[in-house]
């Protein structure tokens, strides 16, 4: 799908840039195209939110960028660079050095990302020694400092705890401490707060934002919650069924959401529903990537879909200097002739 590879609009030079990224998995039931023709970039100090429902390819995207895809995956891209360096041309050694030091990731499931039989402090120490040469005691001091920076109470005690002895919020803080220990230039956070209570979520979001701001980290923040997008994002990429269907600055996206899928995500928020009236969720679920409908992948769930949508796939089109949308109707309000 060459035509999807319209380069992502960017104001400053991106730290990370990927063009026309596709990922496919080998499965018993044939190839599963999880991502198709995704192009994006993120600049230092900027937070790019990637939003979409379960199964839209958000985690696959982050694993692909981190070079952590399983062996059953095939990945292709026209271009993938970090700080101007072509990642494809780097050897395994350089890639490994980059990952963990310059590029770090907070995983969706804190429970599985920590070693259950190793103390939190020791796991941090190992993460430090992986990239920095220093005496173990120094590394331990740094580990405790890193925990303290995340606001964990009595960090020296927590460092001696095993993961199961910590609450979900504390485990997530430990993971954040680990991801940020080398002051990464790029942070990929995959739904780091989805499993947490709202008050803890507020603390964690503050933490990620503050630390990222302090260090000038470029952040890719993955979520399915438009509330989190509004709170964190400078720019937003909306992913549906493995494709990017909309990209805009957060201000533009919330000011005038264009893609019907984006509207569906917003309409699913109780806050944006009319009091007393039923909410307006998107009907149905994300289709199986192996059985994608023809035409616009969203047409089976889109309330605007017409005959063209069922046969012709809409390409990403530029709607403004920094806006892309893949919908035959875009710009929606003008096309449908509504007055604002």
């Amino acid at each position: 799908m060459k035509m999807q590879s319209l380069p992502a609009p960017q104001t400053t030079a991106p730290l990370l840039r990927v063009d026309n990224l596709s990922v496919s998995f080998r499965t018993d039931h044939g190839p599963l195209p999880a991502l198709q023709g995704v192009s994006l970039g993120v600049s230092p100090g900027e937070t790019l939110a990637v939003v979409g429902e379960s199964g839209s390819g958000k985690s696959v995207l982050s694993l692909a960028l981190m070079n952590l895809l399983p062996p059953t995956a095939t990945m292709t891209a026209d271009h993938l660079s970090f700080d101007g360096r072509d990642l494809a041309s780097l050897g395994q050694r350089d890639k490994r050095a980059l990952r963990g030091r310059d590029m770090a990731m907070i995983f969706q499931e804190p429970a599985t990302a920590l070693n259950p039989v190793q103390r939190i402090g020791d796991q941090l120490v190992e993460a430090i020694l992986l990239h920095d040469d220093m005496p173990r005691v120094r590394a331990h001091t740094r580990a405790v400092e890193a925990l303290a920076a995340t606001g964990i109470p009595s960090p020296d005690v927590r460092a001696r705890a095993y993961p199961h002895q910590l609450s979900g919020g504390m485990r997530q803080r430990a993971l954040i401490a680990m991801a940020l220990i080398h002051r990464p230039r790029l942070l990929i956070a995959d739904e780091p707060t989805t499993a947490l209570d709202v008050t803890v979520q507020a603390q964690i979001l503050d933490l990620i934002r503050d630390l990222a701001r302090e260090v000038g980290t470029a952040t890719i923040f993955i979520t399915h919650d438009m509330g989190v997008v509004a709170e964190m994002a400078d720019r937003v990429a909306v992913l549906y069924a493995g494709r990017m269907v909309e990209m805009a600055s957060a201000a533009d996206l919330f000011d005038s959401p264009e893609h019907p899928y984006t509207l569906g995500l917003l309409g699913s928020m109780p806050q944006l529903s009319q009091r007393g009236a039923p909410m307006l969720p998107i009907t149905g679920t994300v289709p199986d990537p192996r059985h994608m409908p023809p035409g616009c992948h969203f047409h089976t769930r889109c309330p605007f879909a017409n005959g063209t949508c069922e046969t012709v796939r809409p390409q990403l089109r530029r709607l403004g200097p920094a806006r892309l949308t893949a919908c035959h109707y875009a710009p929606l309000l003008e096309t449908l002739g509504a007055r604002t």
């Binding site: 919330f254 000011d255 959401p257 509207l263 309409g267 309330p303 309000l333 449908l336 604002t340």
Partner: peptide, 14 residues
């Protein structure tokens, strides 16, 4: 206003 108008269209179509 534009968000509201778009949501309104979406609502009616849905």
């Amino acid at each position: 206003a534009r968000m509201l108008a778009a949501l309104q269209l979406y609502r009616a179509a849905a």
